[in-house]
Design a protein around this nucleic acid. Sequence first.
DNA 1: CATAGATCCTGTATGC
DNA 2: TGCATACAGGATCTAT
Length: 290
Amino acid sequence: MPELPEVEVVRSGLQAWASEVQVAEHPIERVDVLHPRAVRRAEVDLRTHLVGARVRWVSRRGKYLWLPLVGSDSALVAHLGMSGQLLLVPVESPDERHLRIRIRFEGLTRELRFADQRTFGGLMTGALIPDGSGGHLPEQVAHIARDPLDPLLDLDATVHRIRSKDVQIKRVLLDQAVLSGIGNIYADEALWRARIHGRRPARSLPRAEVVGLIEHVRQVMRQALAQGGTSFDALYVNVNGSSGYFERSLQAYGREGEPCERCGSPIRRERFMNRSSYLCPRCQRPPRRR
DNA sequence: CATAGATCCTGTATGC
DNA sequence: TGCATACAGGATCTAT
């Protein structure tokens, strides 16, 4: 499921293509929407907005991607949801089974395709607004906090916000308005590394422990990024359709019953927030009374 | 306002 | 073999 490292792999793949073909010189000539659900928050028809527009570059915050358009103060915004893929493929390639949106550029041999099996993801256009630090971001992303790999992340403020929440720490990690880009997989990995049980109240954690947790989030995400991200199946792929291989490096997520790599205790799976959490019952002690 | 829970969606895996 | 059910989970909406 695409979290920050997987989305960043997609961003950098798109950006490499954008630079290589000088995409800003090739207006969008055609947009096909094959599934209405793939277009989100469409005040203006996606086709109307995009045809004739030119893409400047590819940006990201947390799990959101966006492509600012030349001279329009707006951007094409993408969220991959659970199973979304952004693919760059030759225009003559047959449609993917779950192809939802096709964007073709004048004079380019490859087109941008959005495919999405579970249709939780989508494309949309959004006005660009100031981000408070001299940059811009789409209105739909305004409520998303900076992510752990953002050089402008305010660590002190983030730690303070985390510790001010009256909820369990894993819930806070998954809150994109506090620290973005973290999903179920990297939340479990970082908590395992930090030896913190996800049900512990955020405000009970000493400051240093929260600082350490964020540092573990950063490390695991950097390592995953270096290996092209995590993918359990063909659902998550980069723009060329190939998978990352961080899955083999996971130490908690998906390892129910397998020995903890630190202490040997079997990794346990628990239900949490209507999904699964994987943790070491020995390294990650639960709070006294949940 | 803050927090908790339901909901959307489809392919795959599992159980009877 | 076939049908039913569980499961995967990010973001958004609704309820408390």
